[in-house]
Design a protein around this nucleic acid. Structure first.
Length: 861
RNA sequence: GCCGGGAUGGCGGAACUGGUAGACGCACCGGACUCAAAAUCCGGCGAGCUAAUCACUCGUGAGGGUUCGAUUCCCUCUCCCGGCACCA
């Protein structure tokens, strides 16, 4: 056996073995339990980053572990290949997005292979290939037929200089990222998918997802945002009505003003001939479109000089236009109750509007509405005949009254909005529609799918190049046959990622979107990806799956049975801020940390010039902060196993992970120790005896107990808890114990052989290359990848005596050793005889004796 | 602003169901080996108090509460991270 641990030699050998044997190419096999282990596919940005390495290592550990548990495991991989960065790269380098994307895919695929992930590459998909996105188009047309897809206007960011639509991230402080021009809001026609039709289903089914983290289910629940309220029509003085929706009808008598969106017809009408209003409305056009921008901006408004009539009191209620009311949400108008809504309260304070309390705490205490709005449900006051009602009674009373008058009705409302999928961009899936001057918008017939995106175009930042490409644009109307114009909008890339996991399971079928193979594999048993996808991607996928179910394409309703949301990968951020010019960021690899004599960091210097740099703490690895670590150099220096081991050891998967070069060194040291331990054992020659459990010395029995305790722990930690860090810690602890176990007797060596076999099997999902080699060295002809996960020997776990810690009044005062079978009375007797305990009991009467079996006793005096 | 999460030694983290706070690793310190260094191995390592590795006291972001017992449950607050619908 090679004495040195040489990953650069043994890793390619192990990978060649898996490739040569097709270890990870799987076929549908109804006779075996299936396990579909899926990682979120990467955007092919150019190189893998550490977040990918972390994500795919988690998936690979689970894949290999489940394989060893006897499952038929599918772990596929593909590419989320459409999107904005390819267009940005094209603009910067003049390279077509297609070429850039395909080159990146080729490079990143090699990187994935060098990390030893057990992927079935025969099922690879890339969403930018026509054989994939044709099914986006096909399903879109089915949704159009069923009325799930429909056309309406939507709001976009418009760069008036480049004459182009900007993504939210391309708007910086209200200006276009390339032109610096003030961005305008613009209403354009778009296609929407009716996800709100499924809102109740998507919400209710969250309860059927016990394998999802509670926090993700909560976020989705809040995102869908079901509310029950009342829709009420207010009459408008001088004719017409103003419709609003409220979840607080109990506060109706507290309405002191109404607010409408800038685009609301009432505001538009009032603005005619009123330059001040016109200017205010124009200013509202320049607000951002994101919810965060709307919520954090200064709340402003102007009175329209129009009044609504309160449907109960008959009072005249002034109508305002306000920048925080959006035309796209609900009716574009709200009733304002400053006494019982904080935003209305602040607005009323600012503009001197009346604050009228109509709810008081149910316990009769006083609400200080002179300080802030009172938001709780309570008892109605100042509401005439409705005084004294509670929230539910008031809700009912108002609902009945308005329903009888035909002025309003109960309505369930969702915060969730329909999904706008139109993008005015080139590098995406074409929306399969044709515009005919005679026949209007016509769907592309199925037999003409896919509408293929030309791959040679290079965007220049001024609008969608498809709009200037005659070859793409020109077509015939499928209805009348006359020349017509092809739709140039493409689909949101979330469409691509909403169903790719179905396609892996129906790979290469050019006749159908999905086939019977998907029936075998779906649903995904374990889905792994970043927490940043907790809402949008996961919700869209759940929606898309339901649409497929309703079209009879699948029987699955929930695509992902179990979800693991991994944390971010972080690193130090170092920078200098010159007196003039921009901040310069330095990569942590080029910075030395200065320590004090206790080893605590006190500063940092740039290695190149020895001068200090400032630290901005710790943050997500990113290009802009120059704090990324290249996985490639890591693999070249230490090998894939060390990279994988560090990633799994440094933090539990759901938490953020801080990069540490020293931590990587530590992982590498452990690999060398593991290698050496097996080497020493093998060098001592062949075993002289098989393990005889009945013939072991107390020390040998003790080691064996530790081995099987560690096995029990890592089985639980990998298989159930998914805390790979603690599993690895348990193996490290065991290795420390084995290092001290120097027993060359026949049984001693048999115990060590069993221990090392369990270590190698148990670590093989995490560091598969080294374990592949070590398994052979331990005398096995077969490959470790095909071995079964070892079984815990219950006999080995038996103990004769146990230690119980003893507290007096909750403070640790002693420890007693008792037989493992000892009952409470025995423990109590032993505890009260302990010298440390006696000192604190000190003859005082014992009020209580708490005993936690096998662990702890507490004497209360 | 809203929704979700987090905070434990010098650092990353452990404590799984309310029961020994600090497993494991890193850094640091001491020792062995070496001409020397690196590598490797052995030992120490929360703070205070102490002659002391005894004992004791304090200690899990801050403040309060529940409990025989709280890192864990409840309330209030601070800071950090993720999402907020056209980044993926």
């Amino acid at each position: 056996m090679q004495e040195r641990y040489e990953p650069s030699v043994l890793e390619p050998q192990a990978q060649a073995y898996w490739d040569g044997n097709g270890s990870f190419a799987v076929a549908e096999d109804p006779s075996r339990p299936k396990y579909y282990c899926l990682c979120m596919f990467p955007y092919p940005s150019g190189r893998l980053h550490m977040g990918h390495v972390r994500n795919y290592t988690i998936g690979d550990v689970i894949t290999r572990y489940m394989r060893m548990q006897g499952y038929n495991v599918l772990q596929p991989m593909g590419w989320d290949a459409f999107g904005l960065p390819a267009e940005n790269a094209a603009m910067a380098n003049g390279v077509p997005p297609a070429k850039w994307t395909y080159d990146n895919i080729a490079y990143m695929k090699r990187q994935l292979q060098s990390l030893g992930f057990g992927i079935d590459w025969s099922r690879e998909v890339a969403t930018c290939r026509p054989d994939y996105y044709r099914w986006n188009q096909w399903l879109f047309l089915r949704m159009l037929e069923k009325g799930i897809a429909y056309r309406k206007t939507g709001t976009v960011n418009w760069d008036p200089v480049d004459q182009t639509v900007l993504a939210n991230e391309q708007v910086i402080d209200g200006r276009g990222w390339r032109t610096g021009a003030l961005v305008e809001k613009r209403e354009i026609p778009m296609y929407y998918l009716g996800i709100t039709k499924y809102a109740d289903d998507l919400l209710g089914a969250l309860n059927d997802l016990p394998g999802w983290p509670e926090r993700v289910r909560l976020m989705q629940e809040n995102w869908i945002g079901r509310s029950e309220g009342l829709e009420i029509e207010f009459d408008v003085e001088g004719g017409g009505t103003l419709g609003i929706y409220t979840t607080r009808p109990d506060t109706l008598l507290g309405v002191t003003y109404m607010a409408v969106a800038a685009e609301h017809p009432l505001a538009q009408r009032a603005a005619q001939g009123n330059p001040d209003l016109q200017q205010f409305i124009a200013e509202c056009q320049r607000n951002g479109v994101t919810e965060a921008a709307l919520e954090t901006m200064e709340k402003r408004g102007m009175p329209l000089g129009i009044h609504a009539i309160h449907p109960i009191s008959g009072e005249r209620i002034p109508v305002w236009v306000a920048n925080f009311v959006l035309m796209g949400y609900g009716t574009g108008a709200v009733m304002a109750v400053p006494a019982h809504d904080q935003r209305d309260y602040e607005f009323a304070r600012r503009y001197g509007l009346r604050i009228h309390q109509v709810v008081q705490p149910a316990d009769g205490s006083l609400a200080r509405i002179d300080e802030e709005a009172y938001l709780e449900h309570g008892t109605l006051i100042n509401s005439g005949q409705f005084d004294g009602l509670d929230f539910d009674e008031a809700f009912d009373a108002f609902a009945k009254l308005f329903e009888a008058q035909g002025r309003g009705k109960r309505r369930v409302n969702f915060r969730l909005r329909d999904w706008g999928i139109s993008r005015q961009r080139y590098w995406g899936c074409p929306i399969p529609l044709i515009h005919c001057s005679e026949c209007g918008v016509q769907p592309v017939p199925d037999d003409q799918l896919p509408v293929v995106l030309p791959e040679e175009l290079v965007p220049d930042g001024s609008g969608n190049p498809l709009g200037k490409n005659a070859k793409f644009l020109e077509c015939q109307c499928p209805k009348c046959g006359q020349p017509a114009r092809r739709e140039t909008d493409t689909m949101d890339t979330f469409v691509d990622s909403s169903w790719y996991y179905f396609r892996y399971a129906s790979a290469n079928n050019d006749r159908a979107m999905v086939d019977a193979r998907a029936q075998y594999w779906m649903p995904v048993d374990q889905y792994i990806g970043g927490i940043e996808h907790a809402i949008l991607h996961l919700l869209y996928s759940r929606f898309w799956t339901r649409v497929m179910r309703d079209l009879g394409l699948t029987q699955v309703e929930e695509p992902f049975a179990n979800l693991l949301t991994q944390g971010m990968v972080l690193n130090e951020i170092y920078f200098r801020k010159p007196a003039e010019g921009r901040i310069v960021y330095y990569n942590p690899a080029d910075v030395d940390v200065v320590l004090d004599d206790k080893g605590a960091p006190v500063g940092a210097v740039l290695r190149a010039d020895g001068q200090p740099v400032e630290t901005a703490g710790i943050g997500t690895m990113s290009k802009s902060k120059n704090n990324g670590v290249d996985p490639q150099s890591l693999v070249e220096t230490y090998g894939a196993d060390t990279a994988r081991l560090f990633m799994m050891f440094a933090a539990p998967p759901e938490q953020s992970l801080e990069w540490s070069d020293e931590g990587v060194e530590g992982a590498f040291r452990f690999m060398k120790r593991l290698w050496r331990a097996v080497h020493q054992h093998v060098q001592a020659g062949p075993l002289e005896a098989v393990l005889d459990k009945t013939a072991l010395s107390p020390v040998q029995r003790d080691i064996r107990r530790q081995v099987h305790e560690a096995l029990r722990k890592i089985t639980h930690d990998i298989g159930t808890r998914r805390t790979f860090n603690t599993a690895i810690a348990a193996v490290m602890e065991l290795m420390n114990a084995l290092a001290k176990f120097d027993d060359r007797s026949a049984q001693g060596r048999a115990v060590l052989q069993e221990a090392l076999e369990i270590v190698v099997l148990g670590l093989s999902p995490v560091v598969p290359h080294a374990c592949h080699a070590l398994w052979h060295e331990l005398g096995h002809a077969g490959a470790v990848i095909d071995e079964r996960w070892p079984q815990v020997d219950a006999d080995a776990l038996m103990r004769d005596a146990i230690e119980v810690v003893v507290q007096v009044n909750g403070k640790l005062r002693g420890r007693v050793t008792v037989p493992a079978s000892a009952d409470e009375a025995t423990v109590r007797e032993a505890a009260l005889a302990d010298a440390g305990v006696l000192r604190y009991v000190d003859g005082k009467p014992i009020r209580k004796f708490v005993y936690v079996r096998g662990k702890l006793a507490n004497v209360v005096v």
